[in-house]
Amino acid sequence: MASNNLLVILAIVAVVLPSVTMATDYWVGDSNGWTNGTDYQTWAQDKVFYVGDKLVFNYTMGKHNVFKVNATGFSQCIIPPSNEALTSGHDIIPLMVPGKKWYICGVGQHCAQFGQKLVINVESGAPAPTPTKNSAHGILISGYQFFMAAVLAVAAMVMA
C-alpha cells in the first residue's frame, strides 16, 4: 500500500515538476536583437518576467553594449563607468530579484537619441504553466510527461 502511494506521488512530481521549474530566456528585441530603431518598451509590454528568467542581449560586438542602470540613469541616459559594460555581443542576464530593472546602450547617443533602452518589472511568483505555440521544446516536455506518467502507471499496476 505504501509503495502505491509513493508511486502516485512520483507520478505527480514527474508530470508537474518540469513545467513548473522551466524558466524563460527572453531574446531582447526578438530577431532584431539589441540595436537602434527598436521600441523595447513595446517589445516588453506583453511579457511577464519572473525571477529565474533570463534576458539575452544579442548585438554586433563593438557596435553596442549593455549597462544595468537605475531609474535616473535610464530616464537621463546616464552612462556608468565603462568597466561596468557588458560587451560580449551575447550577454545573458539572469533575473534573480523581483522589481524594476533598467538597461541602456552606452555607445554614442544610442540611448538618448535612438531610444536603445529597456525597462522591465520582474515578478517574484512562478508563472502558471502555459502551453507554447509551435515549440519543439514544449512538445518534448509534453512527451516526457506522458512517458513518465505511463511508466509509473504500469509500475503501479504491476506492484498492485
Results as ranks from 00 to 15, higher is better:
Gly143Pro: 06
Val97Lys: 13
Phe146Glu: 02
Ile120Pro: 01
Phe67Val: 09
Val154His: 03
Gln145Met: 14
Met157Lys: 14
Cys77Lys: 09
Thr60Arg: 05
Gly125Trp: 06
Cys111Asn: 07
Gly143Ala: 13
Pro98Trp: 00
Leu140Asp: 04
Asn58Asp: 13
Thr72Lys: 13
Ala156Thr: 14
Thr130Gly: 06
Ile139Pro: 00
Ile92Leu: 10
Gly138His: 09
His137Phe: 15
Val66Asn: 06
Ala126Val: 10
Ser88His: 14
Tyr26Asp: 01
Gln45Tyr: 03
Val28Pro: 04
Lys68Ala: 14
Phe49Gly: 00
His137Tyr: 15
Val28Lys: 05
Val66Asp: 07
Pro80Leu: 06
Gly108Ser: 12
Lys54Tyr: 02
Val56His: 07
His64Phe: 05
Thr38Gln: 02
Cys105Glu: 09
Asn134Trp: 14
Ser75Tyr: 07
Gln113Glu: 10
Asn83Arg: 06
Trp34Gly: 02
Tyr26Gly: 02
Val51Tyr: 00
Phe74Glu: 03
Lys100His: 08
Gln41Met: 11
Thr130Val: 11
Pro127Asp: 02
Gln145Ser: 06
Ala156Cys: 09
Val51Cys: 01
Ile93Val: 15
Pro98Ser: 08
Asp53Gly: 00
His64Glu: 04
Ser124Met: 12
Thr72Arg: 12
Lys117Leu: 11
Gln41Gly: 08
Val151Leu: 13
Lys63Ser: 11
Thr42Lys: 11
Ser88Cys: 12
Ile78Phe: 10
Val154Glu: 03
Lys68Gly: 05
Gly89Ser: 09
Gly62Ser: 08
Gln109Met: 11
Gly108Glu: 07
Ile79Glu: 11
Met157Pro: 00
Gln41Ala: 12
Phe74Cys: 07
Ala126Leu: 13
Val66Phe: 09
Ala112Ser: 14
Ala149Val: 14
Asn134Arg: 14
Leu86Cys: 01
Phe74Asn: 04
Leu140His: 03
Thr132Cys: 07
Asn83Leu: 05
Leu140Ala: 15
Glu123Lys: 08
Gln145Thr: 01
Ala136Asp: 12
Cys77Asn: 12
Cys105His: 09
Ser142Ala: 15
Gly37Gln: 01
Gly106Cys: 10
Pro98Tyr: 02
Lys100Asp: 14
Asn32Phe: 08
